[in-house]
Measured scan of single mutants.
Amino acid sequence: MAAGGDHGSPDSYRSPLASRYASPEMCFVFSDRYKFRTWRQLWLWLAEAEQTLGLPITDEQIQEMKSNLENIDFKMAAEEEKRLRHDVMAHVHTFGHCCPKAAGIIHLGATSCYVGDNTDLIILRNALDLLLPKLARVISRLADFAKERASLPTLGFTHFQPAQLTTVGKRCCLWIQDLCMDLQNLKRVRDDLRFRGVKGTTGTQASFLQLFEGDDHKVEQLDKMVTEKAGFKRAFIITGQTYTRKVDIEVLSVLASLGASVHKICTDIRLLANLKEMEEPFEKQQIGSSAMPYKRNPMRSERCCSLARHLMTLVMDPLQTASVQWFERTLDDSANRRICLAEAFLTADTILNTLQNISEGLVVYPKVIERRIRQELPFMATENIIMAMVKAGGSRQDCHEKIRVLSQQAASVVKQEGGDNDLIERIQVDAYFSPIHSQLDHLLDPSSFTGRASQQVQRFLEEEVYPLLKPYESVMKVKAELCL
């Protein structure tokens, strides 16, 4: 049975990233139509530049190519590739079939990587351009969430054990800070992308030097003109047959890092959902379990974690691919890159769409948070109580021993009897502590235990987050809708 299948058929496997999760716009960027249309555009740009620099290419040939950029006979191309065992030459023939007058000058002087690699770089750039505003929107939604809850005390956790208090907004800023680093890295790697350009079979530009009869300047002009037509500021000066596969490492490393950030955020949300302090959106008709109707599973956060793990592992592909590119190139890269580049971007696209949807509907339960604080705060307040007693004339050592005994009794009630923490009640009825009984409410005010959390939130948002989001103001209103 021949390899390949009808990918629109229910009898043929289709990647869930495309069929179930990723956005239509990201799927289109990695589609065959987008790819092969870009090949034709690159052939047109090459012909236009070659004509401008004096090669015998007519206006009629150029116009014929322009008129057929979208006229792609995919069936013919597939048949040609089956016959020739070469995808680029299959599309040269297919393009030439609908451009008979231009057929002889299509791909003039070029090698397969002229269309293959340059198209990949265009796709990487455009895919990054799709991700950047999506990530900015996630940051914006979380920034709104953090600002609104900047002063809401909550129990902090280290080692997932109760620690000092923080605020809900401050905790959210930990998430935002990681995503801001990801946004900066995505922008950097996007701006650092260079075009492969017009380089020939081993990167020496020998074929173009021959076409222009040894004119170095025209060869350099050709490279520059096509690079500018493709919208790049610069091209690699040095290439082998391909652009260095280190570029793929750079791009997928940034995406993998984004995956790590999203995994951490969504894990926190899942843990908070278990504590009943916070939940992701839950639709009115949504079913959490087929057997347990009360369940409210954090399905979206779980999906993000599941896909983020996949995204983090994909960076190993370009690392290994770059390491086995012998001399000017081997074909070890080809099949692998067809999979890992598309999957990385479709996965990143999915987790950003999902995280935006989550961040637009996060639900906080202040009463649950308050109750958990009441359970733990008495123990945390013991040092403040000791200091207040010393100020009232008591002995630190005597007070410490009193607190120690009462704390152990209260802990026994919590752990052995399943009761509430009654340390404060014990202190309130103990005559030894009568000098500070009137101060206990103040000493137990949760806001006095959150330090500068709310001020940190305000400063972080104003100095770091809002300036970073400013270039994306025009796209901030787009909502994230999930079908599944």
Rank of each mutant, 00 (worst) to 15 (best):
R14I: 14
S19P: 06
Y21Q: 01
S23E: 10
D32I: 13
W39R: 00
W39L: 05
R40W: 01
L42Y: 02
L44S: 08
T52I: 10
L53E: 05
L53D: 00
E64Y: 08
E64K: 09
M65C: 09
K66S: 10
A77N: 13
E79V: 11
K82G: 14
R83F: 15
L84N: 10
L84M: 08
H86W: 00
C98H: 12
L121E: 09
I122A: 03
L128D: 04
L132V: 14
K134E: 12
K134C: 12
L135N: 06
R137F: 09
I139D: 03
P153I: 05
T158W: 00
A163M: 00
Q164R: 01
Q164C: 09
V168S: 05
G169Y: 02
Q177T: 14
K187G: 13
G200P: 02
G203P: 02
A206T: 08
A206L: 09
D216S: 10
K229H: 06
A230I: 06
G231Y: 08
G231R: 10
F232G: 03
A235C: 15
F236Y: 12
E250C: 12
L252V: 15
L255H: 12
L258A: 12
A260Q: 09
I265E: 05
T267N: 10
D268F: 04
D268H: 09
L272Q: 07
K276G: 09
F282S: 13
K284T: 14
Q285G: 14
Q286E: 03
S290N: 01
A291S: 05
Y294A: 02
R296L: 08
R296Y: 06
M299V: 12
R300D: 05
C305Q: 04
L311C: 01
T313Y: 08
P318R: 01
T321F: 07
V324T: 11
R337L: 03
I339A: 09
L341Y: 13
A344N: 00
L346P: 06
I351M: 15
N353H: 05
Q356V: 07
N357W: 05
E360K: 03
I386M: 01
M387T: 14
M389K: 07
R396W: 02
D398F: 10
R404F: 08
R404S: 10
V405I: 15
S412L: 14
V413W: 13
V414Q: 04
Q416E: 11
Q416C: 11
Q416Y: 15
L423E: 05
E425L: 10
F433R: 03
F433D: 04
S448Y: 14
Q458R: 12
R459Y: 10
E463L: 12
E463C: 08
K470S: 15
P471E: 15
K477A: 11
A480T: 15
E481F: 08
C483R: 15
